[in-house]
Design a protein around this nucleic acid. Structure first.
Length: 1032
RNA sequence: GGUCGAUUAGCUCAGUGGUAGAGCACUGCAUUGACAUUGCAGGGGUCACUAGUUCGAACCUAGUAUCGACCACCA
């Protein structure tokens, strides 16, 4: 006999270990079985399980367990992502916290990376163990880490192949630069946030004191402002970048500025004797209706300006170093400014290298942090009076603008120096610092070329999104894809497999560089050897630069490897095939590529799904990496708020599994907050919301909750009450099994549905098959909520509430044969229920399986019910429907007329046909028991004053005249008659409509006719009962 | 600005053309019986609004209102 209660803590880890040790998670590699593969979205090695992971992996586990039970050869490929920035950050922080004065740079690259590996071995990957707590049936023996040697081999091959095809290239481009981590990042890693900012308005004086007539007109062409100006008005949110302006641009159609296009204006900052002049040019980019219509062009520090500068041949002057400080290198400002001046006036040609070396930051700003520099620039301009009050007829003050007094009433309106303004600012998603566009040399993937077949694969249906409307999001992104910046100035990651050496060794001129792209250092050396006459030595960037690629002492050509590493998503993008052994043609690769499904949240469609599609199709002969992409919802808290630490509403899945006391929960939520000042608020909210912490609900309850809520919507609002409810569901199943054991149900024995005698047994077996068919269909269609609720409904409402009750009289009765059959069916149906629930609740079902019979195998290895045939006894179904209906009706009437629950009442059936008579005979015991009757007979007429209800053709008569009030009973019947009348009228109206009868499908019409007849029959019988009663 | 979505019971949400559903909450009754983490019975909805298509609309179409997500943005 099983325990009184299921204790998840006592079993979950034990069961998991048994599964793992028995190799249950391994693919069968049965060649006759259909392969089924799911690639786990590799969690970050630094990660720990959150609710999103819990949902993601529950879904995958349901699919895998289900398909495994259906006999497929299943590989759920687990692993982790080395997560470049995140991991490097964690280890760097740890180094800082450990108090030593060692930081990454002082330590050196090799030592640091060693440290990271050490950290990884010790503390990395807790998330994989947490996945095990959830019950994830991954093929752990094939666990991969994106930075493993075999992964690296795949990465290098992909890189080299793409390089050789020209699909990977190195170029100087404006990229998103993270000044904190001092690396480039892709635009996906940039988060644009709206912040309070300012817009400054400055006058750029025309060169030589020139003037022009500035005219503004309204829509009808009436002049609203006309004045003589000796300047052009420029607005900017980033004054410090003025120092790098290369031009001022206006729209070609903008008549206001037509007189001064082609002239020069002065950047109103820097030492007066060396103010730079820049040309006023035309470009399509400026919007004449925004601001003054004139835009300063700073090609090296703004993405839009970059495009303008490229089009117009405007020099792009880089102003900042990699930490986001104003440059302090190079020649003094005065000399550089003169060169820049000649370039601006077209008196001198320029080339990229020369421009890059020029530091146009005036001496007084050099070395300043960028936001300090901004303040200084603004202060300096303001001090000179070049910033104040520019006339603009279109400008209207907004709330919060600091408008100097004299500006208010002036006509036309005067723009103040500073406008307060909400501006969108880019932040690094990891560092949280403001991203700086920077001109740097980076490696790029030609994503546009790779995207084409990837788009086509979705269009053709080779890969399907579920729900399908996500394909729009995918197309949207893929069709506008930009070159993918894949180089990162980090240490932790796949080093770029490119080595640099001198371009020629002809006459000791080592100015140019040539690169050797090869999958290994060895092959790079071989390639280099073929290129150079002398001997070659590998060295670092530093030495190679210092010695200009040639060691004169040893007479060696110097070669060094690119210092950068690859974007983490580059290696994740290979996941579907790199994990299966590619480039070797392994069994795993042949069997498990393409995968069946990819399960993920929408937030990494671009990061990951798109990249896997592009790279998979490219390297696997045009075959897509997976057939279905199931996009699941984002888990939020019970009120639909995003779970966040500072809100204090993060629910840790492990806490729901293991339970946690209120104090511990509070402690957990308040420590390590990014904003520690929020701690009291978090504590208060937590105590209010969860005064008792969480019970230990167990993994099954959590999984079932997530499955039940996994609809095709976008958000899941997770409530702990719901988890409790599904824990109760487990308890219900557990107790049903206890009941079966107490009644000596036969477990571990199969039955032959065809040879069953009792209709109640035929019925429950039919119901079981209906349930498992519904569950199968729903899972195949990724409708996990439907699957879960079908299983839930069968178990609780059908099996427990009805079948168990119906079986009681038989199990306690004297009919040995009937009892035998029922014991067998009860045990078997329960076992099949375990099977059907197993994908959702693997632990409790496995424990029940284990403890109900001597078993030589695991539940998780059983065959999905329904696989070996089906069974549907319609006759038994109708019969039991009648039994259930009869019992329910009697119970309902009893309750309506307040018959005490304990009282037994005599019932007779009037007007029953032979079939009903037969059914009554067969089920008299159980009906009497469940409806609490002391008599159930057939009768020709009802005694006066009794209470009546109608089931099909028969009137059910409760002979309790003395217990009830005739008036109340008439009222009760009237209420029912009223309800019936409404429904009947509706049906009659519909059926009276000729158009309906003519046009609606025949079966719908027939159905409604039947329904009408039935309702009319019921009404007639109830009317008779009412009249009889009223006549008393 | 572009794209996707939401609006159904007190709450959280299912429901893609044919009798409006679930869980929780609520009301009444029931406790030696597998289970109070329970059972039985019940109350509660103008399916946001407007117009259309249709024999028939929560569902399809168009529009309106409110809320949300993602992407791109004006210096």
């Amino acid at each position: 006999m099983i325990d009184q209660r299921f204790d998840p803590k006592a079993h979950e880890q034990r069961i998991y270990q048994r599964w793992e040790e028995s190799g249950c998670f391994r693919p069968s590699m049965d060649t006759s079985a259909e392969p089924y593969a799911i690639m786990i979205p590799p969690p970050n090695v630094t990660g720990s399980l959150h609710m999103g992971h819990a949902l993601n992996n529950t879904v995958q586990d349901i699919l895998c367990r289900f398909e495994r039970m259906r006999g497929k050869n299943v590989r759920w490929q687990p692993g982790m992502d080395h997560a470049g920035i995140a991991t490097q950050m964690v280890v760097e922080r740890q180094l800082a916290a450990s108090g030593g004065n060692q930081d990454r740079r002082s330590m050196g690259r090799d030592t640091f990376i060693e440290k990271v590996w050490e950290w990884k071995e010790e503390s990395g990957g807790t998330i994989l163990n947490q996945l095990k707590r959830l019950g994830a049936s991954c093929d752990w023996e094939n666990t991969k880490f994106t930075l493993d040697e075999d992964m690296n081999k795949a990465v290098n091959k992909v890189f080299v192949d793409l390089y050789n095809e020209g699909l990977i290239y190195r170029a100087k481009r404006l990229v998103n630069w993270d000044p904190h981590f001092q690396t480039a990042i892709s635009n996906l890693e940039v988060e644009n946030k709206e912040v309070d900012g300012h817009m400054w308005h400055f006058k750029y004086p025309l060169a030589g004191g020139e003037t022009y007539t500035y005219v503004e007109k309204d829509e009808d062409g009436n002049v609203t402002l006309e004045e003589t100006r000796d300047y052009i008005s420029i607005a900017t949110t980033r004054p410090e970048t003025m120092l790098g302006d290369g031009a001022v641009a206006v729209h070609p159609s903008d008549e206001r500025y037509a007189p001064i296009v082609g002239k020069l204006c002065e950047i109103p900052v820097g030492p007066k004797e060396h103010r730079r002049l820049i040309p006023i040019i035309t470009d399509e980019y400026p919007d004449p209706d925004f601001g003054s219509g004139a835009v300063k062009i700073t090609g090296a520090h703004d993405f839009n300006d970059y495009q303008v500068a490229k089009r117009g041949g405007i020099p792009m002057y880089a102003l900042m170093d990699e930490k986001g400080f104003m440059r302090a290198d190079g020649e003094a400002y005065a000399a550089v400014a003169e060169v820049a001046q000649r370039i601006a006036e077209g008196k001198e040609d320029f080339d990229e290298a020369k421009i890059a070396a020029m530091n146009l930051v005036p001496d007084q700003y050099r070395g300043m942090e960028r936001f300090e520099a901004r303040k200084a620039v603004v202060a300096d301009i303001t001090a000179e009076g070049n910033g104040v009050m520019i006339a603009d007829s279109k400008w209207k003050p907004e709330e919060g603008d600091e408008v100097p007094a004299q500006g208010r009433d002036d006509t036309p309106p005067m723009i103040p120096l500073v406008e307060n303004k909400k501006i969108m600012q880019p932040f690094g998603d990891r560092s949280g610092v403001v991203i700086e566009p920077m001109l740097t040399d980076q490696w790029f993937v030609d994503a546009e070329t790779l995207a084409k077949p990837a788009i086509e694969a979705v269009r053709s249906g080779a890969t399907k999104f579920v729900p399908e409307n996500w394909d729009r999001t995918y197309y949207n992104w893929m069709e506008n894809i930009e070159p993918w910046c894949i180089s990162r100035q980090l240490w932790w990651g796949h080093r770029i497999p490119v080595w640099y050496g001198p371009a020629n060794d002809a006459n000791g001129e080592w100015s140019a560089v040539q690169s050797f792209c090869a999958p290994t250092e060895k092959e790079a050396l071989i390639a280099a050897e073929a290129n150079y006459s002398g001997s070659i030595r590998l060295t670092t960037l530093d030495e190679a630069k210092r010695k200009n690629f040639f060691d004169t002492e040893t007479d060696e050509v110097l070669l060094y490897q690119d210092e950068d590493v690859l974007d983490t998503w580059f290696s994740s993008g290979l996941w579907p095939f790199s994990t299966q052994g590619w480039p070797e043609q392994t069994d795993g690769l042949k069997t498990f590529y393409p995968g069946a499904a990819l399960v993920t949240a929408f937030d990494i469609i671009f990061f990951w799904v798109a990249r896997m599609m592009m790279l998979g199709i490219k390297f696997m002969d045009g075959e897509v990496p997976f057939k279905d992409v199931y996009i699941h919802a984002i888990v939020r808290d019970e009120n639909g708020k995003k779970m966040s630490k500072s809100e204090g509403n993060v629910i840790d899945p492990v806490d729901l599994i293991d339970g946690i006391e209120a104090d511990a929960l509070v402690a957990k939520r308040t420590t390590g907050l990014r904003q520690p000042e929020k701690a009291p608020q978090v504590e208060k909210a937590t105590r209010k919301r969860y005064p008792n912490g969480f019970d230990a609900y167990g993994a099954d309850a959590l999984r079932f909750t997530l499955a039940a809520m996994a609809t095709k919507g976008r958000d899941i609002n997770l409530s702990v009450e719901r988890v409790a409810g599904y824990r109760n569901f487990g308890t219900k199943l557990w107790n049903a099994t206890r009941f079966a054991q107490m009644n000596e149900a036969k477990f571990g024995v199969s039955i032959a549905p065809q040879s069953l005698e009792l209709s109640v047994n035929k019925w429950i077996v039919s119901e079981l098959y209906k349930c498992t068919a519904a569950v199968s269909e729903a899972i195949e269609d990724y409708r996990f909520n439907d699957a879960a609720s079908a299983a839930y409904h069968f178990t609780w409402d059908v099996l427990c509430d009805w079948y168990l009750e119906l079986s009681k009289p038989i199990l306690n009765g004297d009919d040995a044969e009937a009892k035998n059959e029922t014991q067998a069916v009860l045990g078997w149906v329960l076992e099949q229920t375990f099977v059907a629930l197993h994908p959702f609740m693997p632990f409790i079902t496995e424990v029940l399986w284990e403890q109900t019979a001597e078993r030589s195998d695991f539940l998780m290895q059983q065959t999905w019910p329904g696989l070996n045939g089906s069974f549907d006894d319609e006759k038994a179904g109708e019969e039991l429907d009648w039994v259930l209906k009869t019992i329910s009706q009697i119970r309902s009437v009893r309750s309506d007329v307040n018959v005490p629950a304990g009282a037994k009442v005599p019932v007779s059936l009037v007007g029953a046909n032979d079939e009903t008579g037969r059914r009554v005979a067969a089920h008299r015991d159980v009906i009497m028991r469940m409806a609490r009757l002391d008599k159930l007979d057939m009768a020709d007429a009802a005694p006066a004053g009794s209470v009546k209800t109608v089931v099909d053709e028969a009137t059910v008569v409760l002979e309790i005249a003395d217990l009830i009030d005739a008036g109340e009973e008439v009222a009760r019947l009237d209420k029912q008659l009223g309800k019936l009348g409404g429904e009947i009228t509706g049906l009659e109206k519909r059926l009276g409509n000729e158009a309906f009868v003519a046009k609606a499908p025949a079966e719908v019409v027939a159905e409604q006719r039947e329904r009408l007849a039935e309702l009319q029959g019921t009404r007639d019988k109830l009317s008779v009962a009412r009249e009889q009663l009223a006549a008393l």
